[in-house]
Every structure is written in C-alpha cells, then in structure tokens.
Amino acid sequence: MEPRKLITSLGVILTTITGIILFFTEFDKIKAFFFPAGIAISVPLYVFSLLGIGLLVFYSVYIFYFKEVTSHKKTKTELENVKALLLDSERMRLIDFVTGIANQEKFKIDIQNRPKELFHLILIDLDGFGEINKKQGFQKGDEVIRTIAQELFGRMRRDEEIYKRDYKLENNFMKRIYRKYTGGDEFIFLIKGPQYEAVGFLARIQKQLEELNAESPVFSNYKITFHGAIVPLYPSDTFEQAYDKLQRGFVQAAEESNGLRVYWDKTEEDTFVKYKSLYDNARRIFKIQ
C-alpha cells in the first residue's frame, strides 16, 4: 500500500476506535447529553448519528475504491507486460536466428519505408562456406557465420544497414541443404548515396574481413572470400523491383571467373570522374579487369 493511503486508512481506523472507547468510558455523560430528561431524541444525537453513518459509508466506499484502484494497477501492469512481450516477439521476428542481425523480413520493411532518396543495394555470397558445415559440422558453421555477421554489424556507419538473406527451400534445395537454419551465407547491405559510396563500402568490408581472417582463431581453416553485386535503388523502385535487380546483378557476378568478383554497372563510373582512384582500388581488390 502506498504511504499516503496507509496513513489515511490508519487515521480512519484510529478515529473510529477512539470514538468507541470514549463512548463506553463516558457513557453516563453521553447519555445525559443525547437523552435529556423527558426528550426521546436530541439534536446532538441526530447530528452524531449522521456523522457516524457518514463515516461508515465513507470508510466502506474508500475500501471499495482502494480495491478497485489496486485491481486497475494490476491489470495495467499485466497489460504493459503483454505489450512488452508482443514488442519483443516482433523484434525477434525481424532478427536472424543464427547471426543475431536483421533478417530479410526487416530488409523488406526498411525498403518499403525508406526515404525517397537514392540508395544502393549490395548482395554478397561467402565462397566455400558449405565446406565448413560438411567437414566441421553445423555448430562450427554457425560460429563462423555469426562471427562474420557481428564483425560487419559492429563497424557499420550511419546510412549503412546489414541484413541476413533468407533462403526458400524450394529454390536450390540440394545446394542449400547443408544449412541447419535459413539464412545461409549471404548478406544484403543498404547504402545511402551514389554508386561510389557502395563501391567504397564494399572495398572497406573486404579489408575488414581480411583482418578478421588473420586475427580470429575461428577462421583457422577457412579463408573468407566472397562474390557479390552492387545495384542502384531509385526512389520509385518497389521492393520487388529492387530485389529482382539485385538478383540479376548477383547472377552476373557469380558467372564471372574465379576469385573475388563483384558486379556493378561500369557505365555509371563516368559520372564520378573524381573518384577514379576509388574505382581503380576496388578493381584491384576484387580482381576485376
């Protein structure tokens, strides 16, 4: 019980008890005061009766009110707990189980609610990742993919987002069957700005992965390489259009020669002459002729 309500309740109870004690200890005086000789009822008795009834009604109503307030607070607390559980459930629905980063459903929501500005999408596929699951088991594969995801996520900058791509079992089922959970070895990035921002971002990602490969014991038997695609996301593009565009660019990258391969529309480079060194560096990193 709250202190204020406790004090009020104690005051009402003490007043009632005091009145009862005084009534019995001073009975003769009270009787003479309320029942003067020859008068059946007096004004003091009438007033005291009204006060007593009023006090009894007040106390009863107060007890009822206190119970209702307590019940309301309990209900409100339960409702807030349910809301919190629903919010946690919604957040979990948008998180990839293995890696702990945003999943493809979250990617779809962000695409649909993005500012109407120019963005670029990047899709990368880790090379040879299935061998980890086949030779070292799913637990090792989960550890590797989780370490990579958290490393990339931890170094993301403003206007950069990362998502774990999901797989549908009906597509390339035998190729993807080595994964214990949906999510596989592909990541999607959403980068705000023109093409050179995305190209520079992916070159930075490659450097991070090389450092991670050299420093972390998790990758003692696995060298991280990938192939991928960079495609523009215009303000008018829908999620379906953006995803189809990303898929087509990715197919072009996958069909290139061995080694690091990344597809992007080379005709766009003419617009960014002052970033020639950035593109040249990216070509060198990704072994693009």
Rank of each mutant, 00 (worst) to 15 (best):
D88K: 10
V61L: 12
I63E: 10
T70W: 00
L55I: 05
P44N: 04
L86K: 15
S71L: 05
Y46R: 03
G54A: 11
I63G: 04
K73S: 08
G52S: 06
I53N: 01
E78L: 10
K76Q: 13
E68G: 02
D88R: 10
H72L: 14
F64D: 08
E78T: 11
E78K: 14
S71V: 02
I63C: 09
I53F: 02
L51K: 03
K67L: 13
T75G: 06
K76H: 15
T75L: 15
S60T: 15
G52M: 07
F58D: 05
D88M: 11
V47D: 01
K76E: 14
E68N: 13
S89L: 05
L50K: 00
L51P: 00
D88I: 11
Y46P: 01
A84W: 08
L85H: 09
F66C: 05
L86E: 13
P44G: 01
V69Q: 12
A84Q: 15
S71H: 06
L86Q: 15
P44T: 02
A84G: 08
V57G: 01
K74I: 12
K67T: 14
H72W: 04
L45G: 00
V69S: 09
E80F: 09
D88G: 04
L79E: 13
L86R: 12
V57Q: 02
L50I: 07
L51T: 01
T70K: 08
F58A: 13
V43I: 13
G54Q: 04
L56E: 04
V57I: 15
V69H: 03
E90Q: 11
F64W: 08
D88P: 03
Y65N: 05
L56R: 00
E90F: 02
V82I: 10
T75E: 09
T77L: 13
E80H: 14
L79P: 12
L51H: 03
V69M: 10
T70G: 13
V82R: 15
L51V: 00
T75S: 07
V57C: 08
V61W: 05
L45E: 08
H72F: 15
V57N: 00
T75H: 10
L45R: 02
Y59L: 09
F66E: 11
Y62A: 14
T75R: 07
V43K: 07
I63H: 06
V47Y: 07
E68H: 07
Y62S: 13
S60D: 05
L56P: 01
L79D: 14
L85M: 06
N81I: 03
